[in-house]
C-alpha cells in the first residue's frame, strides 16, 4: 500500500449550527486520483476545502476531529496555512485566472513563496506551461491578459500556476463543470499525466468522469462518507445500497 497523504479521523464540520460533514474517516493515498462523488449538497466540496483550510474564509465554520495532511495536523496550534497552501494547490470550479498577464499569473505564486531571482522565473513559467500543454500556444503571448484565453486555456493556466508552486497535492473542485465535453476529456488526460508526480483529489458531480479518471472513489451523501474504495469496485460491485442507487441513477 502506498503512503497516505491525507487522513481524516472523526471529522465533523459545521456552518454555524448546520452540520455539513459528519464523522468522516478517510485515507487518501499518494500519486493517485481520488474522486469525491455524491449529489449536490452532500458535502464533497466542503470536504475538499478542509484539506487546504479554504473553509476558513467563510464566517462561522468550525470543525471537530483530526485532519492530517502530509503528516501534519492542519488544525493543530502550529499549523502554517501559508506553507500548507503551497504544498496543497487548488483548482476551482470556474477558471479564475487573475486579471493579469499569463506570465504574471504564474509568477504570483513564485513571488509569494520563493525568493528566487527573476531569471529563474522565466524557466519556471516555461516549465509549468509545458506541463499543462499550453507553452506552444502561448509562448508568444505571455504578456497578454489571461482573461482573453479560452475557458479551457484559462483552466489549464490555473493548473499551471498551481504546479509552479511545486505542490504535492492538487485539489480540484469540479474543474471541468464550466468546460465543454472535449475540453473535459483533455483535462482528464492532463490529470493522468500529472498523477505521476502529484496526488490529486477531484470533486465531481459527473459519475462518468469519476469512473473514467479516478483510481479511488468516495461516495458521500448528506454529509456522511457512505463508501470509499477502489473506483472499479465502487462502480461494479458497490457494498452499500445507497451507493448502488446513486451510481445507477436512481437519485442524485
Amino acid at each position: 500500500m502506498k503512503k497516505l497523504i491525507i487522513e481524516t479521523r472523526h471529522l465533523d464540520l459545521f456552518y454555524g449550527s448546520f452540520q455539513a460533514l459528519t464523522d468522516i474517516n478517510l485515507g487518501i493515498e499518494e500519486k493517485n486520483i481520488t474522486a469525491l462523488i455524491g449529489p449536490s449538497g452532500c458535502g464533497k466540496s466542503t470536504l475538499v476545502r478542509v484539506f487546504n483550510r479554504m473553509n476558513d474564509t467563510i464566517e462561522g465554520v468550525h470543525t471537530n476531529g483530526e485532519v492530517e495532511v502530509l503528516g501534519e495536523n492542519i488544525f493543530g496550534p502550529e499549523a502554517d496555512l501559508i506553507a500548507l497552501r503551497q504544498k496543497v494547490g487548488m483548482v476551482f470550479q470556474r477558471p479564475n485566472p487573475f486579471p493579469l498577464s499569463v506570465y504574471e499569473n504564474i509568477t504570483f505564486g513564485l513571488e509569494i513563496h520563493h525568493s528566487r531571482s527573476k531569471k529563474e522565473f522565466g524557466e519556471m513559467v516555461e516549465q509549468s506551461l509545458t506541463d499543462v500543454m499550453l507553452w506552444n500556444d502561448l509562448k508568444d503571448r505571455l504578456d497578454r491578459s489571461a482573461l482573453r484565453l479560452s475557458l479551457e486555456q484559462q483552466q489549464r493556466l490555473c493548473i499551471a500556476r498551481v504546479l509552479a508552486m511545486k505542490p504535492q497535492i492538487i485539489l480540484m473542485d469540479e474543474p471541468c463543470s464550466a468546460l465543454d465535453p472535449i475540453a473535459t476529456l483533455r483535462i482528464e488526460e492532463l490529470m493522468q499525466e500529472l498523477k505521476r508526480n502529484y496526488s490529486i483529489v477531484i470533486v465531481t458531480h459527473n459519475m462518468q468522469q469519476a469512473a473514467r479518471a479516478s483510481d479511488y472513489t468516495a461516495f458521500m451523501y448528506l454529509g456522511n462518507l457512505i463508501e470509499f474504495g477502489n473506483t472499479k469496485s465502487i462502480f461494479t460491485k458497490p457494498v452499500q445500497k445507497k451507493t448502488e442507487e446513486y451510481i445507477t441513477g436512481r437519485f442524485g
Binding site: T57, L81, L84, M90, G109, I112, H113
Partner: peptide, 15 residues
Amino acid sequence: VPRQYRDAAIAMGAT
C-alpha cells in the same frame, strides 16, 4: 472585484 480572484490568491497561500 469577484470573490473568485481572492479565493484563488488565498488558496495559493497569499497573505
